[in-house]
């Protein structure tokens, strides 16, 4: 239990209060987010899980100032998402790696550094460091098509880490990869998280993935998109892959599944 208390006293990084977001569509308003209140502390690994349309991606995009909420407040590092973005508070990893085919791996990782105006020498140094962090040293001169899907996604994580943001926002980053690669990347991501002490927001469809990775699991449900359960994981931060066979793990997975079932309308 001491572990849980330690989590809750960490300084808050992302604070959302009564957040609402309504899209106006030709079929009438769609409540993508309704009264979402959540605090994410520094160094936490928070997973958002729920069926399509539950607002998990929308919430991540609001944090990243890619969407504007229509009600409520949200702060990132104590300021607005817009200001936080300008202060390079977060790196964003999308579902697809989205590497530029005309740039090498190193060139892709360098992209944000060029845009943010780092010096040439610092660009090269940072590229070298983050490629090492994601185990892609020696692949800098390769082009994306020469790498496997998993390696491409690692390169896109390196790109998000290159400018030293404290927060890493990941929108189903491993969703398009097969299970074996996904397991491997999950393990690597945990190691990377332990080494860099980033705050991570992670959107996923997969219950085992959410439970394995997270210190906090946010269960969401659709129509309107809302939070139905927030689970503080009692699992230790050090997690070998076979932790997934322990009773504690299965217990959390069960609670997540229950939360998903409760929030899901079976009328369709």
């Amino acid at each position: 239990m001491a572990d849980r208390i330690e989590h809750s006293v960490k300084p808050p990084v992302i604070v959302a209060e009564d957040l609402n977001l309504t899209f106006q569509t030709s079929d009438g308003p769609v409540h993508a987010l309704k009264d979402v209140t959540l605090t994410i502390g520094k160094g936490e690994f928070v997973s958002f899980i729920g069926p399509s349309g539950c607002g998990k991606t929308t919430f991540l995009r609001v944090i990243a100032a890619l969407e504007q909420p229509t009600g409520g407040t949200i702060t990132v590092n104590g300021v607005s998402p817009d200001a936080a973005r300008r202060a390079r508070a977060y790196g964003y990893v999308f579902q697809a790696a989205g590497l530029y085919p005309w740039r090498t791996i190193a060139g892709n990782v360098k992209l944000p550094l060029e845009i943010m105006g780092f010096s040439k020498a610092e660009q090269d140094e940072r590229v070298r460091k983050v490629l090492e962090l994601v185990d892609l040293s020696g692949f800098g001169k390769k082009y994306p098509w020469q790498l496997s899907g998993g390696m491409q996604q690692r390169a896109s994580i390196a790109r998000a880490l290159a400018f030293d943001a404290d927060i890493l926002l990941m929108d189903e980053p491993f969703g398009a990869l097969d299970e074996i690669v996904r397991d491997h990347l999950n393990e690597q991501l945990l190691k990377l998280w332990a080494r860099t002490e980033k705050t991570i927001g992670f959107v996923t469809h997969s219950i085992p993935e959410a439970v394995y990775l997270s210190t906090k699991i946010v269960v969401m449900s659709p129509r309107p998109g809302r939070i139905t359960d927030v689970i503080e994981s009692p699992l230790p931060r050090e997690r070998p892959l076979d932790i997934r066979d322990t009773p504690e793990f299965l217990q959390i997975a069960h609670r997540v599944r229950e939360g998903l079932r409760a929030g899901h309308a079976y009328d369709e």
Partner: peptide, 12 residues
């Protein structure tokens, strides 16, 4: 859209 969003996250 994803490519453009990525650049927005860099405030490009």
């Amino acid at each position: 859209a994803m490519q453009l969003d990525l650049l927005r996250t860099y405030s490009a």
